[in-house]
Amino acid sequence: MDTRHEFGDLTHTYLPIAVAVVVVVLLLVVGFALRYRARPGRPAPSSRRSEAPRLEIAYVLALTAVAAFLLTRTFPVEGKVDRVVAHPGLEVHAIAGKWRWRFDYPAQHRSQVGTETAPTTLVVPTGATVRFTLTSVDVIHAMWIPGERIKRDAFPGRIATFDVVFGSPGFSRYGGECSEFCGLGHTDMRFSIRVLAPAQFRAWAGSR
């Protein structure tokens, strides 16, 4: 699943509404404060009205409609992002442990492990559905790939399964991070990501 694309699509719904709400509230707060500011000679409040039940009910219905609209946009995207396909293009076992990442490629009989100085590099092909099965060997970590707008918790004794489709080829130093605080080394628990064209990936996978 192209999680980056799905995230972008959903923000196109949420962001304009969020900005509009903030702007309207700011305008009303500042506008009312200036418009109704007490000045010498200005009479007492021109309205003693303190309730408008019909207006309030209509407003509550409008708010409910907004909430319902947001959810009708969120649910399908959530369904797509959470769905795992029957036959992924590549399986990667991601194992988190204080404070390093390991990526095993069972079908390719390869394993990526970093060193003290060089972080682990995740190598993936473009365009293919990459199936991650994520777990932890000690405390809770979280695998975050900001570029793909996706994150999953790594619990000890549990396996999280999720699919990601990576876009254009390239190398992203520190393109992946642990985002669940996991102790002293949390700050430096990163990994790099190398996205290869399919042919190059096959060459890499068969290179040993």
Binding site: L10, T74, V77, V81, K151
Partner: peptide, 10 residues
Amino acid sequence: SPPLDYHETD
């Protein structure tokens, strides 16, 4: 929104 939160949380 869960798909937005997957990126923003933590």
